[in-house]
Design a binder for these strands. Structure first.
Lengths: 349, 349
DNA sequence: GGCCTTGCCGCAACCGCTTGCAGCGCCTAC
DNA sequence: GTAGGCGCTGCAAGCGGTTGCGGCAAGGCC
């Protein structure tokens, strides 16, 4: 097998302690000595055994990331963002997907990360008070993404404001009937973002004195196919909306497909705005609310560094990152009444 | 912090050695003793420190997975499949994304997984002989996914045969000009699957005595937008193809969008068949070659178990998993010449 | 010249678990 | 009755690093 630290020590003519210090760049090693150690290590092709280091040092140099539904685009992006900065700092990432049935309960019952991570970032999982207690008593530093008002450091966006901006964009285009594609992804987890985006939609409507019609709020399950079905449901209405605010780009893409299949022109007959700025949103020309997904992960990682270093004390920052409206080609002025009538006829045919 | 094994030993009134054996289910522990140990462990909420275990036992209970471009659907699915069976066996997974510039060279130069994994699965990365040497001399067990003819155990599909089947499907529908969307994803890695699928396409054409026209073979870069551009390129031809075999579903989706935007009816005017059976292929009604992605990962994991247990000896199996044609609604009979002419006119207008 | 500081380095005790080996009690066989 | 075997348990030596502490030499100071 590979060389061990004592081999390096022997070759460099120093003690293992000195090798350890030299290799980790600690200050109290004379330069010539460090040089000898480094070249000995290089010649022997030495790499430290991480398990031995972790055991001796008591730090694991590993962080856990728990996500619901790893398969969703948003989560993979956040993970990728965090991973890049963690890796740069020498940390490994352990992934916990809590999406499966019972996986979440099992996770909080077993705390499988104990003794294996220095910290843990929880992505977009609304924690019950009880779950927060469990995590807090365990003592490992926690930071969350997209979970405001918890007892942990957090980074996220202002979903309400972003949804308001999106809806206002449609209202400014003189749309008066603006539908909402929302709901919850299938599975046991309940996310808070959909609710917040719904609130923003309601607020924007209220600002203009428009009542939020119940029949314009449909569940798209945060999936492409769900969005398509939800759009079909909207088109079946006696007076379908002329604009749709979708809580995610995936649902918006599904909606666009239904519209295309039904012969409804976008944006001439119906405007669509999404949320996320998914990779392919640009390709489909989807107007959407951009949120800095990768950056969410990056910030989470650095917050975690602080938490690990800083111990328990200090304030728990709540970082909110900006969102921006990306105007593309799926939103346009509301159709004049005559055109609307024409569209309805086309959709029926 | 959490309890350690000696705490459990004290509480159960036995030695740490017995605790270790009892907790791991080794046979040589009397049942009553085991019971006492188990309840002591439960009461103390004890979990073993994995680093200490790994260090003492010499096994890391971790495997590495190296993938090019984690962001591509295929790879995430393979990883997920492997992860599920590895996790069930108590293994952690360390992910190495070798997509970035220089990342691959760095990976093979540094071998960052040394001393941290018991084995490693390499997904769809054509290894140079030199790289194979490096891995082999390092000694950690390796299994590959989608890499035939290497010195390691492998699991994959028969890309040539699958591509032949896909192309034959189009030929059976009386198409005579069948285009190929192929190419390589952007980045430094060269994959072998595209080449094999191209070969299958050529073979199927040759069977029917049809020459593979150069202008019908376009590069879609294995992305949605690339597929869209490639399709546009095909439509610009004087005599565009009536059928397209796409090397991936992502490219096929892009192609479908271009066709829709150009007013070309699918499959009446142009048939499209994909490859992979991507999550959303069903939603878009895309006819495609299904490959068992998750199963590739699962099989890879169990092959790796064998390799870890079996030491170096024994044969290196090469498992090939079946692919199946999923007929949906984007392929149909070749248009009769008159219809073709009509389409061409429509495309130009 | 004696004393104290300062900078480097080695000693050795861990970190928490695994495992070969030996010990011990008890049963079976002769 | 004694030897041998078997089942269970404990002892203790690691696994390969990290780190507090103490030693030693060189240099500065009075």
């Amino acid at each position: 097998m590979g060389a061990s630290i004592s081999d390096v020590a022997a070759r460099a003519g120093v003690s293992v302690a000195t090798v350890s210090r030299a290799l980790r760049g600690l200050p109290n090693v004379a330069e010539p000595t460090r040089g000898r150690v480094l070249s000995a290590a290089r010649e022997l092709d030495y790499v430290a055994n991480p398990n031995a280091s972790r055991l001796a040092a008591g730090r694991t140099m590993t962080v856990g990331m728990v996500v619901p539904l790893l398969s969703r685009w948003f989560f993979t992006q956040v993970v990728a963002g965090a991973q890049s900065v963690l890796a740069a700092a020498g940390y490994d990432v352990l992934l916990y997907d809590v999406g499966g049935a019972g996986a979440r309960d099992r996770f909080f019952r077993r705390l499988p990360f104990r003794k294996r991570v220095d910290g843990i970032v929880i992505v977009d999982l609304p924690l019950t008070a009880c779950e927060q207690d469990v995590l807090e008593t365990d003592g490992t530093p926690v930071v969350t993404v997209g979970l405001t008002g918890s007892r942990f450091s957090n980074v996220g966006i202002d979903n309400v404001a972003a949804a308001r901006t999106a809806t206002r964009h449609l209202l400014n285009l003189r749309h008066t009937s603006v539908a909402l594609l929302s709901g919850q992804p299938v599975g046991s987890v309940r996310f808070s973002a959909p609710l917040q985006r719904r609130r923003g939609w309601q607020q924007a409507l209220a600002e203009r004195g428009i009542a939020a019609r119940d029949d314009l709020e449909v569940d798209g399950g945060f999936s492409i196919s769900g969005g398509a079905q939800a759009m079909a449901q909207l088109l079946a209405l006696g007076d379908p909306p002329t604009a749709v605010f979708s809580g995610s780009d995936e649902m918006a893409l599904g909606a666009l497909k239904t519209l295309a299949d039904s012969g409804v022109r976008v944006p001439a007959d119906c405007s669509v705005i999404g949320f996320d700025d998914h990779d392919v949103a640009g390709f489909f020309g989807l107007t959407t609310m951009h949120q800095p997904v990768a950056q969410l992960g990056e910030v989470a990682a650095s917050l975690l560094f602080d938490a690990i270093r800083g111990g328990g004390g200090g304030p728990r920052p709540d970082v909110v990152l900006p969102t921006t409206l990306r105007m593309r080609s799926t939103t346009g002025p509301a159709p004049v009444p005559a055109a609307t009538a024409g569209r309805r006829a086309a959709a029926i045919s």
